[in-house]
């Protein structure tokens, strides 16, 4: 099946089985390996990308659903001003350990701040609740998001 969608700002046409997972399309067909497979069932958030600006688990999105959609992956996000702010904030807060969850958290944080530039602590917890981290105990990830809000004054 032929599908046209926007990937990191560029229009792409692919010919794939409609059930092929977006996660595999990104990792295998486009070699965009920043998204990770932690569970393959929508529970861990390691595979999060933005679809039309909202966080989705790419392991749950079949190719057939992509037509006309705009997908932003960590590769497309990292050089943007917001991406840079989040990168610095995550480093400064110590929010990274094994790192397998990290690209997913960055995308989830972007989606959260996009929707609500000034979340309360409870809203930060809630906004990140689709992403698992087994290493950090989350405290430093919460701190990173607060730090990004401070540093990125007006960006979101």
């Amino acid at each position: 099946m032929k599908i046209e969608f926007i990937l990191n700002g560029e229009t792409q046409t692919i010919d794939v089985h409609p059930a092929r997972r977006l996660l595999d399309i990104l990792r295998e067909d486009f070699h965009l390996t920043a998204v990770k497979e932690g569970c393959g069932e929508g529970e861990c958030g390691a595979c999060v990308v933005l679809m039309d600006g909202k966080a989705v688990n790419s392991c749950l999105i079949p190719a057939g659903y992509l037509e006309g959609k705009s997908i932003l992956t960590p590769e497309g996000f990292k050089e943007t001003p917001r991406g840079q702010i989040l990168e610095e904030a995550f480093i400064e807060a110590g929010a990274v350990q094994c790192g397998f969850c990290t690209p997913g958290f960055i995308m989830a944080a972007e989606s959260l701040l996009n929707e609500n530039p000034n979340p309360t602590n409870a809203q930060i917890r809630e906004g990140l609740s689709g992403n698992l981290c087994r290493c950090t105990g989350y405290q430093m990830i919460f701190k990173a998001v607060r730090l990004a809000i401070e540093k990125g004054e007006g960006l979101w």
Binding site: A34, E75, E87, E92, G94, V96, G99, T102, P103
Partner: peptide, 24 residues
């Protein structure tokens, strides 16, 4: 006194190579 983790940036950017990211 804390310093920045040496591996944080490449992990955040999704550039660190885990086994599933290797190719042959």
């Amino acid at each position: 006194k804390s310093i920045k983790r040496t591996d944080a940036r490449e992990k955040i950017r999704g550039e660190a190579q885990y086994i599933g990211d290797m190719s042959f």
